[in-house]
Each structure stands twice: as structure tokens, then as C-alpha cells.
Design a protein around this nucleic acid. Structure first.
Length: 482
RNA sequence: GGCGUUGUAGCCAAGUGGUAAGGCAAGGCUCUGCAAAAGCCUCAUCCGGCGGUUCGAAUCCGCCCAACGCCUCCA
């Protein structure tokens, strides 16, 4: 039994899928107008683990995650209709669609590094203009929208449930609304479904209301319904787009007469030095910069998983350093198991098997309870201590194999922490292996002759190159430092 | 101003009525020519503060303090 925190009810609910073995899940992707940052990475990893958990529990998940490649107005009052993609296009002297394409692929690349599984479907907003127009027309026909000079607006007060998801009351919102609203709106709360395109606006499509482009929000309503159908299971996204984006999605879809998502899951924000990392604050770190300047992607993935997806997570150099070491232990225990299993004695270890059973139980319980990854990770580290002790005690092969299976299934499969990225260094693996063998042999001769200054000197020089040596009872091992 | 969240060891972070998970850092020990790795041990009488409820609270209630988020583009 899996329980999930549903933002609609603001409480944990037992998850009941709409069909027995299949789950439809939609995750709001970014508007692709600039580099993806640590926040995108966190949301991606959070829902990737959730998806993997459903799969582990036997569900087939259709995971739809969009890319919004239509630029949206930066300020409602701006009649120039400057949108973010358009702005960026001017800045980089590219076509808007070149900007969208460039950052979309960068986003895919950055997420892939984090071991995030590809969505089943990745719909683009520009590929679904017809669906969006249809939905807008439907909203007009049903009295939830109206047209003014080529713009179409959603009439918020016509949709009683507006505000339910984010816990806002329409009358409270009224006061907070900006002064400089577009005068043709009937109500300041109303939001755009379709915008008239000024002559200089490059991204434009023909519609029943003239040439224009869709508003932000409508693409997700249309694409989620198209690929997941009515009443689909899960809609997910960052907490910061709960309002107004998700609120608007519900209003549009249900206003058009369709049942929308049953469970709404929101991932919390990242802080740097206690402050939310965000574009407007300018304190964000792009994923690409992180990878080149801070640590490899898997360290980041572990850092994310160490906090619960609904908690605010602090990212600091200390957090990253801690994750780096912890990841090393998780890799090392797996490597050691792989190394030792072929030569292990036949037999079992009752202590180890009990520890494995307990770890599996605790891991499953933790993830079943609203995807509590920090708690699951605690179970993994508890087991790791047991495994290392068992290895030292010479535990039997079949128990060690069970332990290895645990790491492959849970740490690798569910948490996705054993993902490796392709890089050119890997092509040289054989060469490296051979060279290291030679170096180790040479050092071995020094050691046999008790010429420790030479053998230590060799080790220091290798260390300086990022290769560390470990002398063990069964010979010298080496590894590349991360 | 409206709505909401959080405050747990040096840092990160679970726990949400039964007497403080886990990771990092730090210190000691075992092993070792040395080092590393690994293991073992130590590391919050206490969970922002003050009251209350209870046999019992970090966990529930009240007040206070502090920080943060949404209400505007954001994952």
C-alpha cells in the first residue's frame, strides 16, 4: 500500500490507481529559454524516484513530461508582448525556435547525467497548438472564456473550484493583484488563454481569433489530457508553480468538461544559504556549471535523495562534500561485493541474511510512505555496516549475492545512484588498467626490497595524478579518485 | 496585507504521543612497514522559547520569538 501526499486535500492518502496495473503521470517541465539549474535537477530526480518506485511496485507507468517552448509574456501589462524566449532570442541573436531547441537539448543532456529516466512521452507545446486552440474554443463555448481584440481570457469567477489546489480564496487574491492590469479583461484575476501577436512577434499561429500564440498554462492541460486521458492518476511539479500554473490547468481542463488529475504532487524548493534559489534572485547554479565546478552528477543525485521531496533542501558545499563521501561508500561496498563473491566460500550467513531482510522491509516501508527517501537511505547505510562486517568475517557466497542483489535493486534500480555517464576516459579503460598493473608491479618490487622511500614516492606521484593505491592482504588495488 | 511552511547535534537530515534514524565532519582503537580502505567505539539527558493537556510529548494545544515560501517569471 502506497500513501501519497495529495496537495488537493493537503493530506496523505492511500494511492488507488485508476486502473489496476497502470499509472498515468504528468510532470510539468520547464519553459526552455535558459540553462537548467539545480532546481530542475531536484524536481527531476524527486519524481524519477517516485516513478521508479511505482515501477518497482509492479505498475507500468506512462510518464509524460513536457517542454514548453512557446514564450510567455513577462508582464501582463506589457502590450509589446515581449516573451522570455523572444527576449533571449534577441540577446543571443537567434530565432526564438533556435533558443527553444538549444535549451531543450541542454535540459535533456543535463537530466540524463543525473540518471533521470526518459519520459514515455515528451510533448512540446508548439507541437500541440491545435489541441490548445480546441480547448480554448471549448472554454468559450461553455461560457468560461471570452475574446477581446484577438486575446482570449479565462473567466476565473466562472469556475467555482478555482483556488482549491493552492488553498487560495478568490476574494483574497483580488487585493493582491497588480494595478496595471490589461484594461480589456473583465476581471483582473482572469488569465490569458490566447494572445494576439503583435507584428514583431515571431512565434505565431493562425486561430479563430486571429494570429497569435497560446497562453502559459493551456499547453499542460491539453497535452496531459491528450496522452493520459481523463481522470489520470498523478500530476506533479515544483511547488512554485502550484499557483497559478496548476490552478489554471485544473480550471481549464475541468472548465472544458474533462476530469483532470486525481493526485497532485509537489516537490519543494532548494535553498542556498537559507534562501530560495530562483531565477529572479539570481542565486542559481546551472547543472552544467555544477558538474564542471562542484562534483559529478551522482553526488548531486545523492544530495537530493538525502532530503524528502516535500522538504526544503539546503544545498551547500558541505552538503555536497558529505554526499561525495557517502556515495563513495555506496559504490565501494558494491565493488567489494562483486570482487569477493567469485572467491567466496559456499554457504550462508544468518546474520547477514537477517540484516538484508530487515533492510528490504525498512526500505519498502519508507518509500511506500510518501516516498521517504532519507529514511530508505538510512536503511541502506545500516545494511552497509552489516555487509562490511560480513565481508570481514568471510560470509558465504549466497548471502553475499543476496546483498549485492539488494544494492543493484534498491540503490541502483530505485534510487538510481549507480548511473554512469559515458565519457571518453572510459574508452581508455583497458590502457589504464594495463599501465596501473605495471606501476603496481614496480612498486611491489620496491616493497619486497623494503625500499619504502621509492615505493611511497611512487604512490605519492600516482596520488597527485588522482590515482590512489590500497595495499590489502590479497594485493594492491587502485582506484581513480572522484 | 492575505495564505502557508519550517525551526532536531559543528553541517545536512528522518522521526510527529512511548522515551532522539541515517550521512558528513571530529576524536580514540583494530589491521598495516607507512598510508589508504574497512571495522569497532565515542559524539543531542534532549528536539527555537514559555506555559498547558497526558501516566508519558521533539511529537497534541496556546502564546511568543526567528527564518522562509506563495500571492509576480520560476522546478
Amino acid at each position: 500500500m502506497i500513501t501519497v501526499f495529495n496537495s488537493l486535500s493537503r493530506s496523505k492518502e492511500v494511492f488507488v490507481p485508476s486502473s489496476p496495473n497502470h499509472i498515468g503521470m504528468y510532470l510539468c517541465g520547464p519553459t526552455v529559454y535558459s540553462e537548467s539549474h539545480l532546481g530542475h535537477g531536484r524536481t527531476g530526480v524527486s519524481f524519477d524516484v517516485i516513478r521508479r518506485w511505482f515501477e518497482y511496485r509492479g505498475f507500468t507507468v506512462r510518464f509524460v513530461s513536457n517542454v514548453t517552448d512557446v514564450g510567455h509574456i513577462t508582464t501582463e501589462s506589457d502590450d509589446e508582448g515581449v516573451d522570455r524566449i523572444g527576449q533571449r532570442a534577441k540577446l543571443e541573436q537567434l530565432e526564438p525556435m533556435e533558443i527553444a531547441d538549444k535549451y531543450m537539448w541542454a535540459y535533456f543532456r543535463d537530466l540524463e547525467q543525473l540518471g533521470i529516466k526518459k519520459p514515455s512521452i515528451t510533448p512540446r507545446a508548439t507541437g500541440h497548438i491545435l489541441e490548445q486552440i480546441e480547448m480554448v474554443q471549448r472554454l468559450i463555448d461553455r461560457g468560461h472564456a471570452y475574446e477581446r481584440d484577438g486575446n482570449v481570457y479565462f473567466r476565473v469567477r466562472s469556475f467555482a473550484a478555482y483556488g482549491q489546489l493552492s488553498g487560495k480564496k478568490i476574494d483574497d487574491l483580488e487585493h493582491g493583484t497588480r494595478e496595471d492590469v490589461r484594461e480589456e479583461k473583465d476581471d483582473p484575476l482572469d488569465f490569458a488563454l490566447w494572445k494576439f501577436a503583435e507584428p514583431e512577434h515571431i512565434m505565431r499561429w493562425n486561430s479563430p481569433w486571429g494570429e497569435g500564440f497560446p497562453g502559459w498554462h493551456i499547453e499542460c492541460s491539453a497535452m496531459a489530457l491528450k496522452y493520459l486521458g481523463e481522470g489520470f492518476d498523478i500530476h506533479a511539479g515544483g511547488l512554485d508553480i502550484q499557483f497559478p500554473h496548476h490552478e489554471a490547468e485544473i480550471a481549464q481542463a475541468e472548465g472544458a468538461g474533462y476530469k483532470f488529475a486525481k493526485y497532485w504532487l509537489h516537490g519543494n524548493m532548494l535553498t542556498i544559504g537559507g534562501e530560495k534559489m530562483s531565477k529572479s534572485k539570481g542565486n542559481y547554479i546551472s547543472l552544467a556549471d555544477f558538474y564542471t565546478q562542484k562534483a559529478e552528477p551522482m553526488v548531486l543525485r545523492l544530495a537530493y535523495i538525502q532530503s524528502h521531496y516535500r522538504s526544503i533542501a539546503e544545498v551547500s558545499d558541505d552538503t555536497i562534500e558529505g554526499a561525495k563521501t557517502a556515495l563513495g561508500r555506496l559504490r565501494e561496498v558494491k565493488r567489494e561485493l562483486e570482487r569477493r563473491i567469485p572467491e567466496a566460500n559456499e554457504g550462508t550467513s544468518a546474520t547477514l541474511e537477517q540484516a538484508i531482510a530487515r533492510a528490504i522491509h525498512e526500505f519498502e516501508t519508507a518509500l511506500d510512505d510518501d516516498f521517504n527517501t532519507p529514511k530508505a537511505l538510512a536503511a541502506v547505510f545500516d545494511l552497509t555496516r552489516e555487509v562490511n562486517a560480513a565481508l570481514a568475517a568471510g560470509a558465504g557466497k549466497s548471502s553475499l549475492e543476496k546483498a549485492l542483489h539488494f544494492y543493484n535493486t534498491f540503490v541502483g534500480g530505485v534510487l538510481g545512484l549507480y548511473h554512469t555517464t559515458q565519457n571518453s576516459a572510459r574508452d581508455d579503460a583497458e590502457l589504464l588498467k594495463g599501465l596501473m598493473q605495471i606501476a603496481i608491479e614496480a612498486r611491489g618490487v620496491y616493497r619486497q626490497n623494503r625500499d619504502f622511500s621509492r615505493s611511497d614516492g611512487l604512490r605519492e606521484r600516482l596520488k597527485a595524478l588522482g590515482v590512489s593505491l590500497e595495499d590489502t592482504a590479497s594485493g594492491t588495488r587502485w582506484k581513480l579518485e572522484s
